[in-house]
Amino acid sequence: MELSLADTKKWIELFVQKVESEKSQLNELDTAIGDGDHGTNMDRGMKAITDAFSKKEPEDIVSLHKTVAFALIQKVGGASGPLYGTAFLDMSKKAKDDADLTTLIQTGLAGLKRRGQSDVGMKTMIDVWEPVANALKADEFNQSVIDEALTSNKALVATKGRASYLEEKSKGHLDPGAQSSAYLFEALLTVLGA
């Protein structure tokens, strides 16, 4: 299934709104196991996306994903910049020949794994992206997929990223990148009308 340009834009706009309204929640999660700025960083990226959309209306899905990627790469500042940025840049490249939603999310996931040199189970955003990608493929994507992904992420001990310095103490805390990724996919669910 392909998302239309209008729906893709709506998806990103809903994500922007969600991150902006949950900025302090993301900072709080990051304070527990990181450096406390995930909300502030992502919020800066969201404003850059809004700016970029208002300066130049994306004319197709390829350019929309690319616009999102560059805004995040240039403005986020923390590790989530190159991570989300790579995901959206790879999705943009893929969309040139295949804009199927499941394929795009899988492509973004592969980009995250490459850039972060990480995999599922390390207490990162991948813990949300992978189950969502799998659920889309199986045509079983719904809110419970996201909820379960967050629950299992919370229980993990971090082995990647700054939280890994905390070892066992990272257990019981939700990874902030997993939470912002959950917002991304909740926005997608809204657009899909599920």
């Binding site: 790469i73 500042g77 923390g78 590790a79 910049g81 190159p82 991570l83 940025g85 790579t86 850039r115 972060g116 990223g161 700054r162």
Partner: peptide, 11 residues
């Protein structure tokens, strides 16, 4: 030095 420096450098 740290994580995002490395990732941006790789990009």
């Amino acid at each position: 030095d740290l994580g995002s420096s490395k990732m941006n450098l790789e990009m």
